[in-house]
Write a protein that binds this DNA or RNA. Sequence first.
DNA 1: CATCCGACATTTA
DNA 2: TAAATGTCGGATG
Length: 921
Amino acid sequence: MNIAQIESNLQNLIKSFSKETFIYDLLLAYGLPKASITRLQKGNLNLSKSEGEISWKKKLRFQEEYSADLHLTISELAQSIKHEERFVIVTDYELFLAIDSKTGEKLDIELAELPKHFDFFLPWAGMEKAQHRNENPADVKAAERMAKLFDEIKKDNPVKTEEDSHALNVFLTRLLFCFFAEDTHIFQDGQFTNAISSHTAVDGHDLRSYLESLFEVLNTASKGRKDLPAYLNAFPYVNGGLFKDSFQVPEFSRKSRQLIIDAGEMNWKDINPDIFGSMFQGVIDPEKRGSLGAHYTSVPNIMKVIEPLFLDELKEELEKAKHNPKKLNELLYRLSKIKIFDPACGSGNFLIIAYKELRRLEIAIIHHLQDLQKAAAGFNSKSEQLSFIPKAQLSLAASFQVELFSRIQLSQFFGVEIDDFAHEIAQLSLWLAEHQMNVEFYREFGKTSPTLPLKEAGKIVCGNACRLKWEKVCPKKEGDEIYILGNPPYLGKKEQLVNHKLDMQLVFNSQDGFKNLDYISIWFFLAAKYCSNTPKCKAAFVSTNSICQGEQVGNFWILIFSQNIEIIFAHTSFMWKNSAKSNAGVAVVIVGISAKNGSIKKIYSSGKIIQTQEISPYLTSGTTTIVTKRSRPLSQIPEMTNGSMANDDGNFFIDHEEYIQLPSHLKVYFRQILGARELFYSFKRYALWLKDEDIEKALEIDLIKSIVNKVAKYRAGSTREATRKLANTSHLFGEIRHKSGQALIIPGLSAEKRDYIPIDFLTNGEIVSNLAQVIFDFDPWLFSLLSSRLNIVWVRATSGYFKKDLRYSPVLSYNNFPVPYISDQRKQEITQCVFRILEERERHSEKTLAQLYDPDKMPAGLREAHRQNDLAIERCYRSRPFESDEERLEYLFKLYEKMIAEEKVKDSLFEKEKKGRKVKK
DNA sequence: CATCCGACATTTA
DNA sequence: TAAATGTCGGATG
């Protein structure tokens, strides 16, 4: 059941209204199951015994009320809820009251108005309001209304070509402007909607020609207008390019005409152009409709970008200049010259918020100038506080008049957007924002520049930012102050489609490892190019955190830094959220860059701000050492490999219960297998694992034959050639790295919050899956090393992550981990710590590793054992104990650099020696 | 041949 | 129903 259907159901319900069935019809209108409603009607689902009252568990509490005050009745009912009824409804079939017992929202309307408030009961249809929690209801409603209108128009006007689609987009944008205009005094109140309802036919046939002439009127200055009927001539000249070109207006039906009038009757005054645009875009694009505005950036997140990028600094300037009229004027001038550029602007929310913030700052500056002038004139109530201001400044302030208009123009705002509709909306939203700020300006000063005719528009280009020349979109003159910002798309290497890959190829031009980079790296790269050697130009984007982690760091940041660029501020990983979608399942960072300038850098991390001279690509302070993949350990430690990958579509695996029930002659063909989950939660899982000598015999068994066949079929159907080849050996794992004997298992992924990476010994020949790493030939002290605080600190700094959870990788974290020389005696001491940790784990053998290593519940004994272990390990590094993780990391990086340097020396000596030998021969 | 990563996916509280 | 926390195997070097 979709929203449009529900609304029309409600309209029918009111049209063919019946007291007796009203409440049941209402439930039916929201798509609740007919069978349940019949049972409710018969009484066997109704939990209430009183006459005229209905109670349906978790759904509804309903009462007819004719005598008492309805408001009293409903508040009594709402306070005595017994069966978690979601909605309480009381009505005398004229007045209609409802309360949402979960959110506390109230509805108080005439029954006939019910269809207009259809959204109140959407939770019955499984559409939780939480989806748009904290969202301005006006935006949601407007977006939904427009979606309905859009669907209806498309029915009568099939979109065949790109031109059709563009014309429709332009039309909707213009319509939106008219709705907004007539509710915000740009037009007269209701002028647009009234004109349609009184001057066009009910069946909609002449609405098209009417709108065509109206749009022409809006594009014509009063001088050029001839022989117009008064109701058309009453519309003002809009200009600004919004109505400039003529595009085909669609045909209308009775229904679509009515939808326009209905939409016009909404209050468009409360629309937020910054958010609404994104919601609207989600509604219009059928592919994105499922994830309504899922990727738009919330205002708090936009502030996280613009404050450190330029706003904080401008505010500081204002604070410094507030008693100096000359400097205040200079600041006003500066604001009028700043350029803001969003090369992935969508419907423009970054630009709009930046615009509004600059306008507000301008208002504050003008206030200060006025205060100074009042103080100079000696009649300001604040004049006493201002008495310390030098006379010269005051007389300067008195010597000119502050002109009350805004110096900030939309033409200072630049954008690129690939989606035609979004780009139209961005343009429009900027105008709407301008008008809103004009209104705010008027409230402050009683004066403002008129909104109409619209001035020059924001410079939003529809195109692919990866291929456009950015300097053509946002021209750069010497000395220009330019801020590039936005939230470009993220696509990991696997998610990129052919077009994206081509973009990557064009931009990175076969740079080392560019195919591993996320799609967003294009924006950083082009921004770096734009900012390079341009001191007053800075850029900051919201980005997936993966570009600052793991393998991408090595390939990506070296490229950025090579353009004489540095990171000027950063927000470390936080989970992406906005009100349209509570969790997009991605952790993001915000990174600001500019040409090198030696300024103080800021790292924003979980509410704290760290000031530093240098920010590393890992978004930590102090070092730009980059750790790259390494195939063998740097230190004297044994080799670590990934576990064995089944590549079986789950067919090899059986759980513990299935294993128990296997006849014993089959059990021998299965082995216990562990990945991270099994390790943490003590699950037992088994997988088919045939030894060479068993293969022939085993393949005669039906059960095993059927498993192998399924795996073969799955592998043969793969898109990947290597996997299809594996179909020939479908009785085996796809990748086998198992060795017999003892093994040390290290989880491939471990929760962020843990203080230690829980690792374990395997002694019964269990198989380690590809979801964990394994070391086969090792001394026990290695357990201690990998369990140490030092190790997790290193891994946190250098490894990749999955959202915010640590990913353990042999080639990034382990092979690069610097370990000093450790004497045999030390190793023996350390081994004692291993036994102690194992003993402490044994004391709580009923607990899983996940429970034992939950930092809030970690048993004191185990914690102490780890502390002792840390002390023992750290003594191998240096005699003085470490005081913080920062200190540990700094030490490890220094040691790493030293060992890398030594290795280089050794390698070059080795090379020389080799050459020398050749010469001798 | 080896392995990193996911504008995620699934379980848990 | 939000919060917690790791699957699985393709793409890439």
